[in-house]
C-alpha cells in the first residue's frame, strides 16, 4: 500500500440549506495523479477549496503528510508545507517579465514567509535564476523570458502558472481545470506538459471537465455527484462503472 499524502476524513460543508459536500472520505497516494470529476455543481471546487484551507468545512478533517492539519492555516502557510495550487483563472504577475514571474516563487520558497533582504542584489541570485530558467525551459518559453506576462495568450498564461508552481517543487500540486476555456491545440500542449511532469513523481490532484485530459493523465479518478463521492478507481474501472455513466453522462457510452 502506497503512502498517503493527503487524507480527507468525513468532510461536510453546506452553504445555507445546500449540502455541498456530504461526508467525503478520500486518500491521495504519493506520486499519483488523482483526478476528481463530476458534473457542474457537484462540489469539485468546494472540495479543492477545503483542501487548500480557503474554506473551512463544517465538520471533518484534512491532514497532510500523515498528521499536519490543513484546516485553519493561512494560504502562505499551506504553501510552506508543500502544497501549491493552479487556479481556474490564471493567477500570474501580469506586470512582470516571464523570468521574474518564475523567479518570485523560487525566491519565496527559499526565503520562507518573510525575509527582509534589502541589501542583497538580485544579480547575485544566480541559483534562483537558473532554477527559473529551467522551469521556463520545461514549458518551452525560455526564448520569451523578457516578455511581460500580460501579453501572453490564455493558454500560455496557464502554462506559465504551472511553471511557477513547478519551480517550487511542491509535494502536492492542485490543478483546478488546467485546460478550461482552451483551444484544442492549447489543450494538447498542456496534456503533453502534464504527462512530461508526471514522470517527476510529484503528487497531483486535477479537477477537470475534459474527459480526454482526465483519461490521458490520471492514475486514479474519483467521481463526485451532488456532494458525494460515488466511485473511485482506475480510469478503466471508472469507464466501466454504470453508476458513473448514469450520474455524469446520463447513461451515454464513454
Amino acid at each position: 500500500m502506497a503512502e498517503t499524502v493527503l487524507r480527507i476524513e468525513n468532510v461536510n460543508k453546506s452553504f445555507g440549506g445546500l449540502l455541498a459536500l456530504n461526508d467525503i472520505n478520500l486518500e491521495i497516494e504519493r506520486g499519483k495523479v488523482h483526478a476528481i470529476i463530476g458534473p457542474n455543481g457537484a462540489g469539485k471546487s468546494t472540495l479543492l477549496n477545503v483542501c487548500v484551507g480557503l474554506l473551512a468545512p463544517d465538520t471533518g478533517e484534512v491532514t497532510f503528510n500523515g498528521g499536519e492539519k490543513i484546516i485553519g492555516k493561512k494560504p502562505h502557510q499551506i504553501n510552506q508545507i508543500g502544497l501549491t495550487r493552479v487556479f481556474q483563472t490564471p493567477e500570474i504577475f501580469p506586470d512582470l517579465s516571464l523570468l521574474e514571474n518564475v523567479m518570485l516563487p523560487a525566491l519565496s520558497k527559499r526565503d520562507g514567509s518573510y525575509k527582509m533582504s534589502i541589501f542583497k542584489s538580485l544579480s547575485d541570485e544566480e541559483e534562483i535564476e537558473n532554477e527559473a530558467i529551467g522551469a521556463l525551459e520545461t514549458i518551452g518559453m525560455l526564448d520569451r523570458k523578457d516578455t511581460i506576462a500580460s501579453s501572453l495568450s490564455r493558454g500560455d498564461k496557464r502554462r506559465l502558472e504551472l511553471a511557477m508552481c513547478l519551480v517550487q517543487k511542491p509535494e502536492l500540486l492542485l490543478l483546478d481545470e488546467p485546460t478550461a476555456g482552451m483551444a484544442r491545440h492549447d489543450t494538447n500542449q498542456t496534456i503533453e506538459l502534464l504527462k512530461q511532469i508526471k514522470e517527476g513523481g510529484m503528487t497531483k490532484i486535477i479537477i477537470e471537465h475534459d474527459m480526454h485530459v482526465v483519461f490521458s493523465v490520471a492514475d486514479k479518478i474519483s467521481v463526485l455527484a451532488r456532494g458525494a463521492i460515488i466511485a473511485t478507481g482506475t480510469p478503466d474501472e471508472i469507464k466501466a462503472n454504470p453508476l458513473v455513466r448514469e450520474a455524469y453522462l446520463g447513461g451515454a457510452e464513454l
Binding site: K74, E100, L104, L107, S113, K120
Partner: peptide, 23 residues
C-alpha cells in the same frame, strides 16, 4: 533586491504572492 522584487509581486498580484508562500 529580492525584497524589492517581492514588493513588485505584491503590486502585481497579491493573491498569487500569498499562494507562493509569502506573507
Amino acid at each position: 533586491s529580492p525584497f524589492g522584487m517581492k514588493l513588485k509581486g505584491i503590486k502585481s498580484n497579491q493573491k498569487r504572492m500569498k499562494y507562493i508562500g509569502s506573507d
